[in-house]
Design a binder for these strands. Structure first.
Length: 796
DNA sequence: GGCCCTCGAGTTCG
DNA sequence: CTCGAGGGCC
């Protein structure tokens, strides 16, 4: 049948099929069956056909890979099933005599054998591509969304860019695929494509910027806002795992999954294989290692996965890393360079961290100029000196690290490096505590570096999230006296910022950037003021984290926030009571206590609150905590020496407040049933300096607790208090359970059926009889948009 | 007292 | 990403 006798629709369909087949043969089977010229001719014909008959153009047509318009941002995508990160194993390059260089790999296999009680389990083995992990979602066989890995939980929507990659099928081939399929794999740039692209870039004489290395090139290409740019990049794709999988039976083995993926049109590396036990894995590692340089793409190791999926489930996870898989990495690439200097950086906690300033060297795909030396022990271990030639590599292919010194090249007259005795920034003593690895500057707030770093932490994305407040501004603000504590941020005015900028320009002798085309450019300052203002409304968890208390990171801050629920309670609580929170022990509790013990810190908190910082999620302490704070428990745990649980109980029965116990005289204590000796001891303690301080704090804390509880009760009246809500139909942005939970926290009762008592209903897509009934009864009807907006307005 | 896990803190480059 | 160290469990 010739083109002439076909209808345009049939011709278009036939062309598409042939183009898709050619793609499949080229990218998946690696066995092209038609010459490039013919392929191009078919594409041109199809494009012409679709231009002539626009109704024939479908989104999954091969001509429609580059579509859509440049976007301004990538929307976050939550992965239904988190994307994993693998543990690493290395082969020890210089094992001690008698030591197994492949201990890590063998340990990995041995643990699996122990847990599963099998010998030499079967592994699916594959090369580990050096690219960018992504997830592709197919619904009813059509590619609907693609996202980057992100932090594993949430990535970025890069669908438009992924569509331009010909190795990624826009629709699934074959049959038997599930209704919902998520495929995980690696986008990478083949070496040849990388070279060719850079050749073109060189020829363009600066018009096209050359790419640094294939891996960054892949990552950078997917982050292009304009898919037409991505389409110009020679990207490819290999699939290696599943995410969501709904509506079809799941194969029993990982190797079968890969075979299925290949049938459905995904490129799967021809190097994937299976191997038995540790020895099989190591043989595969050796084989791939020998091929590494000749491969048409970069790899950084191989991956071993337990092949049996049921066994994978049995093995489970530690955190987000599976017990059933490991990445066996090739040794990192190494380079030698010169140590030009060894400097000390001062961190937020005063930690003095030595860092090597290196002669720029290209290693592992980037130019490295700095390498951390961690601490004085590390410097001593390596014996790095200024002027040394050292071997550097990128640990885990990211953070540069000094591997060792090339002693043969050491110049004469070098001296071992020593931690300076005084802080290079503020001149305070640098002290190293007994048994600690870090040395610290003791300058605290007097040290500009610590000040800058703590403000930087405070403003961080995960803390108060002040957008646009970078290290440079913080330094400058500090230098000119606008910023002593974080509270000063909330006192800054537009004029302050502009004045600071003027002085910075004066100091640097730079042309004032603030003056452009005769007008004073103030946009950056306006933005910053706005960002600061926006940060005022925050959560307890963020606020606590932002304070930068030692040992209090994100998760401890969260625990404190959920357990105590109220800043005023936390800031007055004596440390033994802080230990009520799981995962908070002596050390952390003491650190928190010490922080709040400083009047300066309490003043900063007062200042922050006075300048409009508002914690919007204060809530009553958890029920568990309220029990724990009952009088007898407080007495037992407040840190009063010799007071046993039993005695605490007796006291609690006889007195009705902590204050009463603290002010009781000996007679009263004896009357309460305490043996004379215990009573004397307690009385002595409570009237000693230590006891008085403790009592004062406990009383204050309990008062705060009481107020917090009362306050929370008073404000518990949510905006939907007393209202009955009915949900019907399907909501797209959240599940019914989530909607229910959110409505309930705002005070609503969520019921299942519509009656005249119903306050309003929320009708999603395809709402049925409940909607009819609500209309009949004249009940208010919300659509999803209205619900979302309402939830947003009320902190949903 | 030792082991295993998790968390905190510091870090690099584009 | 890595190291060091705190916390919990045996």
């Amino acid at each position: 049948m010739s083109a002439k006798t076909e209808t345009p629709a049939a011709r278009a369909a036939r062309l598409r099929e042939r183009i898709e087949d050619a793609n499949y043969r080229y990218h998946v089977l690696d066995d092209p069956d038609i010459p490039d010229a013919e392929y191009d001719a078919m594409m041109r014909e199809l494009e012409a056909l679709e231009a002539e008959h626009p109704e024939l153009a479908t989104p999954e047509s091969p001509t429609q890979r580059v579509g859509g318009t440049p976007s301004s941002a990538f929307l976050p995508v939550r992965h239904e099933i988190p994307m994993l990160s693998l543990a690493n194993a290395f082969t020890d390059p210089a094992p001690r005599p008698g030591e197994d260089p492949n201990k890590q790999t063998r340990d990995f296999v041995r643990k699996i054998e122990q847990r599963l009680d099998v010998r030499d389990p079967m592994f699916s083995v594959e090369p580990k591509f050096d690219g960018l992990a992504i997830s592709l979602r197919y619904e009813d066989g059509m590619f609907v969304r693609g996202a980057t890995r992100g932090d594993g939980e949430t990535g970025e929507d890069v669908t438009a860019n992924l569509r331009t990659i010909k190795a990624i099928p826009l629709k699934l081939r074959g049959k038997g695929w599930p209704r919902v399929l998520e495929v995980r794999g690696e986008v990478y740039m083949p070496r040849a494509g990388f070279e060719a692209y850079n050749e073109k870039a060189r020829a363009s004489e600066g018009k096209i910027k050359p790419l640094v290395n294939p891996r960054n090139a892949a990552a950078g290409s997917l982050r292009q806002l304009d898919p037409r740019v991505t389409a110009q990049r020679p990207l490819s794709f290999y699939a290696y795992a599943l995410g969501a999988f709904e509506g079809a039976p799941m194969p029993a083995r990982h190797s079968e999954v890969l075979a299925k993926l290949r049938e459905w049109g995904f490129p799967v590396s021809p190097l994937v294989s299976t191997a038995r036990g540790a020895e099989g894995c190591l043989a595969y590692f050796a084989k791939i290692g020998a091929m590494r340089d000749k491969l048409p793409f970069d790899i950084d190791g191989v991956v071993y996965k337990v092949d049996d999926l049921a066994a994978q489930r049995e093995l489970g996870f530690v955190g987000r890393t599976p017990r059933w898989a490991i990445a066996h990495k090739f040794p990192a690439q190494e380079q030698t360079t010169l140590v030009e200097d060894i400097i000390v950086n001062i961190g937020r906690t005063g930690a003095a961290t030595p860092a090597a300033k290196l002669k720029p060297v290209f290693v592992g795909g980037v130019t490295v100029t700095n390498a951390t030396l961690h601490n004085a022990d590390q410097v001593a271990r390596l014996d790095v000196r200024v002027g040394d030639t050292v071997i550097v590599r990128r640990a885990g292919d990211v953070i540069p690290e000094v591997v060792r010194v090339v002693l043969e090249l050491r110049p004469k007259g070098t001296k071992p490096w020593e931690m300076p005795k005084h802080c290079p920034i503020c001149g305070s003593d640098i002290v190293r505590e007994e048994g600690e690895a870090v040395a610290r500057c003791t300058g605290e707030l007097a040290c500009a570096a610590q000040r800058t770093q703590s403000v930087f932490h405070f403003a961080g994305r995960r803390a108060m999230d002040i957008d646009g407040l970078g290290e440079r501004y913080i330094e400058d603000l500090g230098e000119f006296g606008y910023l002593r504590t974080v509270a000063d941020l909330y006192k800054l005015t537009l004029e302050d910022l502009l004045e600071m900028k003027r002085r910075v320009d004066e100091r640097d002798g730079t042309v004032p950037e603030t003056v452009k085309a005769g007008k004073i450019a103030t946009k950056w300052a306006e933005n910053l003021i706005e960002a600061i203002d926006k940060s005022r409304r925050t959560t307890l968890e963020r606020f606590l984290y932002a304070l930068g208390i030692q040992h209090v990171g994100e998760s401890t801050a969260k625990a404190l926030a959920t357990w105590f629920g109220d800043l005023h309670l936390i800031r007055h609580l004596p440390w033994p009571l802080l230990k009520l929170v799981p995962d908070i022990g002596d050390e952390v509790a003491r650190a928190i206590d010490a922080f709040f013990e400083q009047p300066g810190n309490q003043k900063v908190i007062d200042d922050l609150l006075a300048h409009g910082v508002e914690i919007r999620d204060t809530h009553p302490p958890s029920a568990k905590l309220r029990t724990a704070l009952a009088l007898e428990n407080v007495l037992a745990r407040a840190g009063i020496p010799k007071l046993t649980t039993r005695r605490a109980k007796q006291l609690a029965a006889a007195f009705d407040s902590f204050e009463a116990v603290a002010t009781a005289d000996m007679a009263a204590l004896v009357e309460a049933g305490l043996p004379r000796e215990t009573a004397e001891c307690l009385h002595g303690f409570l009237h000693g300096q230590e006891g008085k301080t403790l009592a004062k704090r406990v009383v204050r804390a309990l008062k705060a607790l009481h107020e917090a509880t009362a306050h929370a009760r008073a404000t518990a009246a949510g905006p939907l208090d007393g209202q009955t809500v009915v949900l019907t139909g399907t909501l797209s942005s959240l599940t019914r359970d989530e909607a229910k939970g959110k409505l309930e926290t705002l005070g609503a009762k969520v019921s299942g059926s519509v009656s005249k008592k119903t306050s309003f209903i929320v009708a999603g897509e395809a709402a049925g009889s409940k909607l009819d009934k609500a209309q009949e009864l004249g009940i208010e009807i919300w659509d999803e948009a209205k619900l979302t907006k309402f939830l947003q307005q009320h902190g949903g």
